[in-house]
Simulated scan of single mutants.
Amino acid sequence: MKCNVGGIDRIVRIAAGLLLIALAVSGMIGWWGWLGIIPLATGVFRFCPAYPLLGLSSCPK
C-alpha cells in the first residue's frame, strides 16, 4: 500500500475517529459511532482505499 493520507488529513481522521468511538462508548450516540474505526484506521495506516479510486492523495510528493 502506498501512502496517500498525510499531514492535516491524517490528524483530522485520527481525531474524528477517536471522538466518534469515545461518544459511542459513553452512550451519547448510537451504534454508528463505532464507524469511527474507519477514519481512525485510515489515519493510523496512512492509506484510504477511496483515494486511489478518486485520484486523490494528501501526501507530499
Rank of each mutant, 00 (worst) to 15 (best):
L20W: 05
R13W: 05
R46G: 01
I29C: 11
M1R: 13
A15E: 03
R13C: 05
I14E: 03
I14P: 04
V25A: 13
D9H: 12
C3R: 14
A16H: 04
L54E: 13
R46T: 06
L19G: 12
C59N: 06
L53W: 10
K2F: 08
A16S: 15
L54A: 14
V44G: 05
I29Y: 09
M1E: 11
G30L: 06
A15P: 13
K2M: 09
A16D: 01
T42R: 14
G6N: 07
N4V: 09
R10L: 08
G30N: 11
F45L: 15
P60L: 03
I14M: 10
N4K: 09
A50R: 05
L53R: 15
C48V: 04
R10Y: 04
A15S: 15
K61T: 00
S57H: 00
P49R: 09
I29T: 08
R46K: 15
R10D: 02
A50W: 12
L40R: 01
F47W: 12
G17E: 01
P52C: 12
V12G: 08
G17S: 06
G55L: 11
G43P: 08
W31A: 07
S26V: 09
L54G: 04
C48Q: 02
S58L: 06
R10V: 09
R46S: 15
G17R: 02
G33D: 06
P52R: 10
G43T: 04
A41W: 09
L56M: 15
I37Y: 03
S58W: 11
L19I: 12
A50M: 15
C48M: 03
A22P: 01
W31R: 07
F45A: 08
K61D: 04
L23A: 12
L56N: 06
C48G: 00
G30H: 03
G17H: 03
R13K: 14
G33P: 07
S57V: 08
G17A: 13
V5K: 04
L23W: 14
G27W: 09
C59Q: 12
I29Q: 06
L54D: 05
I37G: 03
M1N: 07
I8M: 14
A41S: 14
S57E: 08
R13D: 09
W31D: 10
L23D: 08
T42K: 07
L40H: 00
C3D: 13
I11T: 14
I8E: 01
W34N: 06
V44T: 07
V5P: 02
I8K: 12
C48N: 11
V25G: 00
C59I: 00
G55Q: 08
P39H: 14
A15Q: 05
M28S: 10
V44N: 02
I11E: 02
P52S: 04
I38T: 10
I38A: 15
G17Y: 01
V44F: 03
G17Q: 03
G27S: 07
L23I: 05
I29W: 11
R46H: 12
L20T: 02
L40V: 00
G17F: 00
F45W: 10
R10T: 02
P52W: 06
L20A: 14
G55W: 07
G43Q: 06
R13N: 04
V25E: 12
P39S: 14
A41E: 00
I21Q: 04
I14Y: 09
